[in-house]
Simulated assay, not measured.
Amino acid sequence: MKSFNIKPTSQCRYDILSLGEIMLRLDPGEGRIRTSRQFNVWEGGGEYNVARGLRRYFGQRAAVVTAFAKNELGLLMEDLILQGGVDTSLIKWVDYDGIGREVRNGLYFLERGYGIRGAVGCSDRGNTTISQLTAGEIDWDYIFGDLGVRCNAICPGTVHTPSHDDRLNATGDYDAALEAFKSRQPMGRLADSGEISPLVLYLLSEESRFITGQTIAIDGGWSA
């Protein structure tokens, strides 16, 4: 592999680039998956969601590295990604055999939780395109060399968010569930999102230009 070519922010094409699977998410609204005849569709993936959020809320220049089977579902997901303002030029397209025996695009069904009814999700992602990629199919020399992309990972502990509160409430005993989570933390408490976001912003800034290839835990000592 050629040498890293880390560039100043002003010379970079992107502020953030995500690598990971993106699936088509089907949402039955307030209904149930098993009885719904209509679904709203979204694009979704853990890494991509971060890139899209940074694009939407902070105006960051975002792109995604993923792989799609070249069919109508893949083209739909690409269009949804573009609607979110995320660059799709680094997507790897793979020919589709018409059946999905070799590669296919993944589906994820998510049913919202209400009150005591928890959220329900199920995925249909066997042989998805990105899972079938082999070494050399993504041009890392171009990404890390020519584009000068830096690669770092943030590993947070349990963070107190509205979504986490929903999960605690769904157990039927919020206080007991919260104490169980706290007991795993050496600091005896959960993190606040404001304790994670400064690290994200730092890694996106010019001040972190000499940091790459790092996994940074911000988990209150959990992994120590």
Rank of each mutant, 00 (worst) to 15 (best):
T35W: 05
S36E: 02
S36V: 02
R37L: 05
R37N: 09
R37H: 10
R37I: 00
Q38S: 13
Q38W: 03
F39M: 10
F39W: 02
F39N: 04
V41Y: 14
W42R: 15
W42V: 08
E43G: 14
E43W: 03
E43Q: 14
G45E: 08
G46M: 13
Y48T: 09
N49E: 10
V50D: 13
R52W: 14
G53R: 08
R55L: 08
Y57I: 11
F58Y: 14
G59L: 09
Q60I: 09
Q60H: 13
R61S: 13
A62L: 06
A62C: 09
A63D: 05
V64G: 00
V65I: 14
T66L: 05
A67M: 05
F68N: 03
F68A: 01
A69W: 02
K70Y: 11
N71E: 06
N71H: 04
E72P: 04
L75W: 08
L75M: 13
L76R: 12
L76C: 10
M77C: 08
D79R: 08
L80E: 14
L80R: 13
L80N: 12
L82K: 15
L82E: 15
G84H: 12
G85I: 02
G85R: 03
V86N: 02
V86F: 02
V86P: 00
D87Q: 07
T88W: 04
L90V: 01
L90W: 03
L90M: 07
I91M: 01
K92A: 00
K92G: 01
W93L: 05
V94W: 00
Y96W: 09
Y96H: 07
D97K: 03
D97P: 04
G98D: 05
I99S: 06
I99F: 04
G100Q: 02
G100E: 01
R101L: 10
E102F: 07
V103W: 00
V103L: 01
V103I: 00
V103N: 03
N105M: 02
L107V: 01
L107K: 00
L107G: 03
Y108V: 02
Y108M: 06
Y108W: 03
F109G: 01
L110K: 11
E111V: 01
R112G: 09
R112S: 11
G113F: 02
G113I: 00
G115H: 11
G115N: 15
G115S: 12
G118K: 11
A119R: 14
A119Y: 12
V120H: 13
V120M: 14
V120T: 15
C122V: 14
S123P: 06
D124S: 13
R125C: 12
G126P: 07
N127L: 14
N127Y: 14
T128M: 13
T128R: 07
T129Y: 09
I130V: 14
S131W: 07
S131D: 13
Q132L: 09
